[in-house]
Design a protein around this nucleic acid. Structure first.
Lengths: 131, 131
DNA sequence: CCAATAATAGTAATCTTTACTGTTATTAAT
DNA sequence: ATTAATAACAGTAAAGATTACTATTATTGG
């Protein structure tokens, strides 16, 4: 049971993610942390992102296109993914709370959670198309 | 506007996916089609899977772990992904139809669709844990 | 301060998917 | 049926994303 040790790199990653609401990729995290720790390696970024996900401090967002993204907001909310610019945007909404119960009725295993992703054109790309 | 030409490989891929309900990966498709067309290349499998997705004949399922999976069932349904064995299982359920309307109220762009994935332990893995 | 070890930087390797190229198969028109 | 145009193919290389490995450094508890 390896005990967790403090690391300044990990703190910097967490802090960076907290400062952003655009769900950066591992590479974006890497580039930004380099401003503070020029020698940080991409592997360190990936390892810490995984670790933070596993202890529930951040969330990993997997999309149909491009690399995974990371989100420091762990309270329940949904995401919209633009099919044009691939940006990922938070959607704050009240959701049918018993979605999981409903699913559980039709399923033999144990449902522990769910994620809903919305797809379409974001505000910016909607404007672009109209031009 | 390149017109679509028939291809036996593509037909075989479609047929194979129709025969399965376990959402095979590109590699699984490849291995199985090789039984019929020993010379088929993995690139052909990927190209045709993409093509079939783009014309709406199959669906791509992207999960947090492992390669994409493909599903010939295009009617609306949800998926469950097991955190232990990573199998992907259909969940047939009536869903709150206005989920997208609800999201649209809080969102500036155009919402065209959504997917909901459930997570947890599948039936088999639930049994395994109890042992 | 020191010993134990988690975490790191740097790099190599792996896994998944896409791109490229010369050849083959399909199609529509002769 | 032949032919010409070209979509699709096999084979292979390359790209993109992530994980694994190793010697060194940083953190921690005693």
């Amino acid at each position: 049971m390896a005990t967790l040790k403090y690391s300044r790199q990990r703190e910097a990653i967490k802090e960076f993610l907290n400062s952003r609401d655009d769900h950066p990729t591992a590479d974006t995290v890497y580039e930004n942390i380099q401003q503070i720790y020029p020698n940080i390696s991409l592997g360190t970024v990936y390892r810490n992102l995984s670790l933070l996900v596993s202890i529930g401090e951040i969330i990993k967002i997997t999309t149909a296109q491009g690399p995974d993204r990371f989100d420091a907001r762990t309270t329940p909310h949904n995401h919209f993914i633009c099919r044009d610019c691939h940006s990922v945007i938070d959607i704050e909404m009240e959701e049918n709370g018993d979605l999981e119960e409903l699913a559980a009725k039709r399923f033999a295993g144990i449902i522990e959670g769910h994620t809903t992703n919305f797809y379409g054109l974001c505000g910016n790309c909607t404007k672009k198309v109209q031009k």
